[in-house]
């Protein structure tokens, strides 16, 4: 340490050495240099190949959640079909069939069940067709209202007013052993359950169909 030449100000030694070695390699002749470049290219190619081979399982792993909608869905019972009062709309909740132990409360899913006849039901997703916020049912005025942007739906799920482009999403249902079952397991959105289709029902406001596009020929 006592040696004054240890001072950082004399930095020139490093670059000098580099330059010297560069000159040395130039003197080794073009054949040797091109062989080194070839080896370097071989090294890059090897790493590229291994990278590609590794990319396959990595991409497969990353895309694991992407599946057909049906593979996520299954039939879930919402209770005895008789337990729903005729002509009324009830909020029910069920456990999402596709769960992990660490899902916590998020595996509770809600739906609105409307009983229209002896075994006639409509089961609505609670998600507003605009941006998915949970709509609330008001039995007094027979309307669903969304708290986010004020989308409103009639009792049959058709669009009444506000920004939604279509009516509420519905679940497929069946009655099995007296139980009302729905085909659920997937967050309803415009890309799966119902798509952006016209589900116009009797009495729907004509203007509501503006956004519903080429389904009316």
């Amino acid at each position: 340490m006592s040696d004054q030449s240890d001072s950082p100000r004399k930095q020139s030694t490093g670059p000098d050495i580099d330059r010297a070695s560069e000159q040395a390699s130039d003197q080794e002749g073009p054949a040797i240099v091109s062989r080194r470049w070839l080896l370097l290219k071989a090294g890059i190619a090897l790493n590229g190949l291994v990278g590609l081979a590794l990319a396959v399982p990595i991409v497969r792993y990353l895309l694991a959640p992407v599946r057909k909608d049906d593979s996520y869905k299954s039939w879930i019972s919402l209770g005895a079909a008789d337990s729903f009062p005729m002509g009324e709309t009830r909020l029910v909740s069920f456990k999402n069939p596709w769960t992990r132990p660490w899902d916590g409360e998020t595996d509770n899913v809600a739906a609105y069940v409307r009983k229209e006849g002896a075994n006639q039901f409509t089961v609505f997703a609670i998600n507003c067709a605009h941006l998915g916020c949970p709509v609330r049912w008001f039995p007094q005025s027979q309307l669903f209202m969304c708290p986010c942007h004020g989308g409103v739906y009639y009792a049959d799920g058709s669009r009444a007013s506000g920004p939604p482009e279509r009516g509420l999403f519905t679940y497929d249902y069946k009655i099995a052993g007296g139980q009302l079952q729905i085909d659920a397991g997937q967050m309803p959105s415009l890309s799966n359950t119902a798509k952006l289709v016209n589900i116009s029902r009797p009495g729907q406001d004509g203007r509501a169909k503006d956004g519903d596009c080429g389904c009316r020929g």
Partner: peptide, 19 residues
Amino acid sequence: MGGGLVHLLLGGPTIAGAT
């Protein structure tokens, strides 16, 4: 790609632990 993108975003079919 909408459906696939949603699955990728959420890590599954719904908003849950994986998300």
